[in-house]
Write a protein that binds this DNA or RNA. Structure first.
Length: 931
RNA sequence: GGUUCCUUAGCUCAGUUGGCUAGAGCGUACGAUUCACAUUCGUAAGGUCAUUGGUUCGAGCCCAAUAGGAACCACCA
């Protein structure tokens, strides 16, 4: 294939990806056969946090995939049987919101359909939308095993979830509880605490008359649900009232409440008196539990006032608040209003509606045991965290974890496999009345649910149970969730209509993806690493650890790498409303997949929220093009050498050996088919080997910022700028080939497409680059490599001085002269070429011009005497500068503690430095004298 | 209110167990150019590493305090 003048990613990416995928290179088993000889043999497993199956990727996905795929490709090159497992999320609530909106647009409502109908409809809806996400993951180059893609509603996921749920149910860790839950009136579902979005808002704080007290509240409309008034037990102002029942004037007439004492009350806030509304406030609920208070529901599931609000019944909460305040004002019950009070109001994280705490029966997981076990494994350091600080944060979270509400009232999800005994089997009057009572209670249309009425309900149920199936349990576990009703042992049960919280199934992701089976050996579980966003440490990582430990007895992954948020170019959070959202796929289209990956990884470190701008993608694109042109140039040299060169035979032999290497049959450390013939070649072998080894360390420690910077610098600043330049003078075709292959391999994890595109365009390579072996160390002569360092120093100094003279000399070009200097004598042509000077010659014992300030080398720039004289000042300045450095070193040596305590190597280095600087100064002085 | 993190060049960020002259990309200035690459090459300018104190032979890094910023958790009615 011919190399075009610049690299065009769009010409290669789709085709290369297809070939990778079709070759089976993404599948772990295929790789294992080819790389069985590598010393780092073993398996490597990593899962992709499943993106929304019917959504589009955002910048965070771009970062996740760039990180994960770099890891996967690196370990694959290292010879590990690598399994990068992709996933797709049914995204329960997100998808449901989108679907419900679509339904509403068509003029329908969810209440027109049964749950099964809705489930089927959403399934079709998702099916239609699906595929975009997967195409985008491909565009980013993810080397994941597509045939193993797991969708969060797949059969194996559901069966694992049911298995776990059943075990927990049998272990008594699951209970049905009536508790206050966060409830979105718009979406009619409960939320976990972590799904609630608190926003700071101004809310007037009303000081109202309340019997003998004045108290402050932001929610006067809940007054109808007040069943007590509380003060702090230590508050002397109100001691006399504690335990007494007071009469309170209300907008619907007077009512009586008890005065209680509870530690929860902050004496400093407001007047130190709090009205207690157990049905609509979490704190009040807890107070109510402690003091056995009645629970009166005044807000229903649609966010409207219930019958308990009397003439305000049916009003939406906001409206009712205004109406109640107005009525209170008229009755003179409002003492004052603090309009500037700011509080945090809970909102639905999706639709923004105000969340109402609501009394609901839900399924809960008792998390005590789960959390305790998880903490034990964390304390034993079984999981390594990047950044390490997150481990402590996680343990702290687990210590304070509250019971986990796993029920959601949306149809799009995994049905909860629980069935409730029903008395509907017969047509008896008592059972239908129970049903009515039950359904009324479930939907909370009853004005109040006091302990009294609950007890009545219990009594009635017991009565029915005795009649119909006295010994049958109220709830049974059964996986036949496709049926709305089942019969077990002659007793009828109806399905619970709720679905699982997404995190309940996601928490089992590592087991599900790796096909974990109890008692069976599994090389891929635990995962080697869990890579995800730091923002879901609690929601996901914590739960995976708890559930993994519970089910398998071991942690689900060995390491956790958490990435931070990708912020916009100015460090601001990206959001649709700000309009600063960056679409990763647009960048891929514009600059190529590799450019995007290099750009987003540049300067990225664990756990940090970091800014991202298109500039870094441009830099990535430039690197790809640079590498392309390096390859084009080398291919050109290879082609040239083939046509009629005298060394054709020699090269052909070397190539035969090279091919053997390419087939991956040579063990690491075996002879590579090259020899180094000059110091530039030894030098590049040293530099590439060092780079490769540092990269290995970077990967082991997830230092992506440094890895990208290092490999870029090695390819550009060392390989291209010095080695390739030097090869314009001395061509070593076998070494050019070996080293080019090496840089392709070390860049491949980050920039898979361009490296693969080059690999296939080169005349001597074959197969897929992604299936090659990570390069071994290169052999080199260290003394020779060091000589090249010296030569570089001479060239850099020559360039610097030439540049300084460039304005004055107006385009005049000067040659170089050298004295007693073997290095320069032997490499004159190379020095002249690198320094871009027209000539270089021995000064024949007659030094003239401007001597370059390089230690141990005698090289002159052949400039006229007047230029030298002009340069006198520069020389003097330089003597002073070196003198300052020398003083600093000397000062260090005069400190006896330094000589005693610092490592000997360091002290020796200082001594050498002093010697070198002294010599330099002496020489510069001499030069000054000559002038 | 609690926890964690951040403060390094004009901008965005690296900087490993403390070690000599603190790096990169972009930007800026000057220069180059048929001969792989203008998506190029060369050179340079730009930093009291937030502040103050401490530990140490030695601190951007460790400790303490202060100032500013961010994220997460909790939710004061």
């Amino acid at each position: 294939m011919k190399f075009t003048k610049s690299y065009g990613p769009e010409e290669f990416e789709p085709q290369i990806y297809r070939e990778w995928e079709e070759s089976g290179a993404f599948l772990p088993k295929k790789q294992a056969i080819q790389s069985c000889e590598d010393e780092t043999d073993g398996s490597y497993s990593i899962v992709m946090p499943p993106p929304n199956a019917n959504g589009n990727l955002h910048i965070g996905h771009g970062l996740t995939i760039a990180i994960e795929d770099s890891l996967a490709r690196y370990y694959r090159l290292r010879g590990r049987s690598t399994w990068y497992i992709p996933g797709a999320d049914h995204a329960g609530f997100e998808t449901w919101v989108v679907y419900e909106r679509a339904l509403e647009k068509e003029g329908h409502s969810r209440f027109e359909y049964s749950r099964d109908e809705l489930y089927a409809r959403v399934w079709d809806f998702v099916e239609q939308q699906r595929g975009n996400m997967e195409l985008q993951v491909r565009a980013l180059g993810a080397s994941c095993a597509w045939t193993d893609l797991t969708f969060t509603l797949d059969e194996n996921v559901v069966s694992r979830v049911y298995q776990t749920f059943e075990r927990m149910w049998n272990d008594g860790m699951i209970y049905r509880g009536e508790k206050l839950v966060n409830f979105c009136p718009k979406h009619q579902t409960a939320f976990a605490d972590i799904e609630v979005d608190y926003r700071e808002e101004k809310a007037p704080l009303y000081y109202i008359k309340y019997g003998p007290f004045t108290l402050a509240t932001t929610r006067p409309e809940t007054k109808f649900g007040d069943t007590a008034v509380a003060v702090n037990p230590n508050d002397e102002r109100y001691q006399e009232w504690v335990g007494k029942t007071i009469t309170v004037e209300g907008v619907n007439g007077p009512f009586e409440v008890e005065v209680i004492a509870d530690e929860m009350v902050d004496m400093e806030f407001g007047t130190g008196v709090v009205k207690i509304t157990p049905a609509h406030d979490f704190n009040d609920w807890e107070v109510g539990q402690r003091h056995n208070l009645r629970v009166v529901q005044v807000i229903d599931e649609e966010g409207k006032m219930t019958e308990a609000a009397g003439r305000f019944a049916g009003m939406p909460v906001q409206e009712a608040r205004k109406a109640v305040v107005k009525a209170m004002k008229e009755m003179g019950m409002i003492v004052k209003i603090d309009e500037n009070y700011v509080t945090k109001v809970p909102h639905c994280y999706k639709c923004g509606a105000v969340i109402e705490p609501m009394l609901k029966e839900q399924w809960f997981i008792d998390v005590k045991r789960l959390a305790r076990e998880a903490i034990k494994h964390l304390d034993d350091n079984e999981i390594k965290f990047y950044p390490s600080s997150k481990k402590r944060v996680l343990i702290e979270y687990l210590k304070n974890l509250k019971d986990w509400n796993i029920s959601r009232q949306i149809p799009w999800g995994i049905p909860i496999p629980m069935f409730r005994k029903t008395a509907l089997a017969s047509s008896s009057a008592s059972s239908s009345s129970l049903d009515a009572l039950l359904s009324r209670r479930m939907s909370n249309t009853s004005p109040s649910a006091t302990p009294d009425s609950l007890n009545k309900l219990e009594d009635q149920r017991r009565f029915c149970e005795q009649e119909h199936a006295p010994d049958a349990p109220e709830w049974i576990f059964d996986t036949r969730t496709n049926l709305p009703e089942i019969e077990v042992g002659g007793v009828k049960y109806v399905r619970d209509e709720d679905t699982f919280d997404t995190w309940f199934s996601s928490s089992q992701w590592p087991m599900v993806c790796t096909d974990y089976l109890e008692g069976r050996e599994n090389a891929y579980y635990p995962l080697n690493v869990m890579e995800t966003g730091a923002d879901i440490l609690f929601a996901w990582v914590a739960r995976m650890i708890m559930m993994g430990v519970y089910t398998t007895g071991e942690v689900p992954f060995r390491e956790v790498y958490l990435h931070g948020l990708v912020l916009d170019a100015h460090g601001k959070k990206m959001s649709k409303s700000k309009g600063n959202v960056v679409n990763p796929i647009e960048l891929v289209t514009k600059y190529g997949s590799d450019a995007f990956r290099l750009g987003i990884l540049r300067g990225r470190s664990a756990g940090m929220n970091q800014a991202f701008s298109e500039n870094s993608v441009v830099a990535g694109r430039n690197l790809c093009n640079k590498l392309w042109n390096i390859s084009r140039f080398i291919q050109g040299m290879v082609d040239e050498s083939k046509s009629g060169s005298v060394e054709a035979m020699e090269i052909a032999q070397a190539e035969m050996k090279a091919e053997i290497v390419n087939e991956g049959q040579v063990r690491a450390g075996a002879e590579l088919p090259y020899s180094t013939d000059n110091m530039g070649e030894d030098w590049i072998c040293r530099q590439l080997t060092a780079c490769k080894e540092k990269l290995e360390d970077d990967f082991a420690n997830y230092r992506f910022a440094e890895a990208v910077e290092r490999v870029t610098a090695t390819i550009w600043d060392e390989y291209a700028d010095w080695f390739i330049e030097s090869q314009k003078i001395y061509k070593n075709i076998p070494l050019l080939k070996v080293t080019l292959e090496m840089i392709l391999k070390i860049l491949h994890p980050f920039a898979p497409f361009v490296t693969e595109a080059i690999w296939r365009s080169l005349s001597w390579t074959d197969g897929l680059l992604m299936m090659q072996k990570w390069p071994p160390r290169l052999k080199f002569d260290p003394i020779s490599a060091e000589n090249f360092d010296n030569l570089v120093a001479v060239v850099v100094e020559a360039r610097r001085v030439l540049n300084e003279l460039s304005v004055a000399s107006k385009g005049k070009r000067y040659g170089l002269l050298y004295g007693d200097d073997a290095l320069v004598d032997d490499n004159g042509l190379l020095v002249a070429s690198l320094a871009k000077v027209p000539s270089i010659a021995s000064c024949e014992g007659q030094p003239k011009g401007l001597r370059l300030a390089v230690a141990n080398h005698e090289v002159y720039l052949d400039v006229p005497q007047e230029v030298v004289t002009k340069h006198r000042e520069v020389l003097e300045e330089r003597i002073l500068a070196v003198g300052r450095e020398l003083d600093a070193l000397n000062l260090r040596m005069t400190n006896p503690n330094y000589v005693d305590k610092a490592p000997a190597k360091l002290v020796q280095q200082t001594r050498d430095g002093i010697k070198e600087k002294e010599e330099l100064i002496a020489r510069l002085r001499k030069e000054l004298e000559v002038i």
